[in-house]
Design a protein around this nucleic acid. Structure first.
Length: 194
DNA sequence: GAAAAGATTACCT
DNA sequence: GGTAATCTTTTCC
């Protein structure tokens, strides 16, 4: 398992992210995402993600590498943070050019904030553009904790993605069925067996 | 250079 | 359910 001895605690390693993007997306549900601060560590349990894959017209990587999406082509486990309107959103890179958008989480400390929605999740965790390009498998301050996964495959809902204008029908949004922290619009999807 | 679009959210009716 | 806010990146002339 994770053998790295860093001060921030155990974290998922490269091999976790170096798998097919849909597999990683589903496997991230129920896991704990952490962001170390100077004096604090904030944590959320991931309840909703979206996959962005090769030949996907809705993906930021669809038209090739630009300055903005540079980190989306980096190693598996790299954090890709981009700005949209007034907020930032975070992705975890799987295979270079593919990524999983972190759309919503449940606070680990109840009543401590609202991580429902990709912008809110980043605000809750304190993720900023300074975190773009950091390696979550190594010493980056943002990472996913191994070993704790509270999402049964039988409760994973598959549905179309949110807020895009192209490839709108692809079923690449994954969420924990019935979880109150899943963002709006509420998924009207299909149960998928593992 | 200028203009349009955007992986969103808050607040309106 | 619809729309404005708001600003960076990308695209077009």
């Amino acid at each position: 398992m994770g053998s790295s001895s860093n001060s921030g605690g155990r974290r998922l390693g490269r091999a976790f992210y170096d798998r097919p993007t849909r597999t990683v997306a589903r496997d991230l549900l129920g896991r704990v995402l952490k962001a170390r601060g100077p004096d604090t560590v904030r944590a959320a349990r991931i309840v909703e993600v979206e996959a962005y894959v090769a030949n996907d017209a809705a993906s930021h990587a669809f038209r090739g590498l630009t300055e903005r999406n540079r980190s989306m082509f980096a190693r598996p486990g790299t954090l890709y943070v981009y700005r949209i309107h007034q907020v930032v959103c975070a992705n975890l890179v799987t295979r270079p050019g593919d990524a999983v958008l972190l759309r919503a989480g449940a606070p680990v400390d109840e009543g401590s904030g609202n991580p429902s929605g990709p912008g809110r999740l980043c605000r809750y965790l304190g993720i900023t553009q300074d975190d773009d390009g950091t390696d979550t498998t190594r010493r980056g301050r943002v990472y996913v904790v191994p070993g704790v996964r509270r999402a049964l495959d039988s409760r994973i809902l598959t549905s179309p993605r949110v807020g895009i204008t192209r490839a709108v029908d692809r079923p690449l949004r994954f969420s924990v069925e019935g979880d109150p922290w899943v963002s709006r619009p509420r998924p009207r999807g299909v149960f998928t067996s593992a």
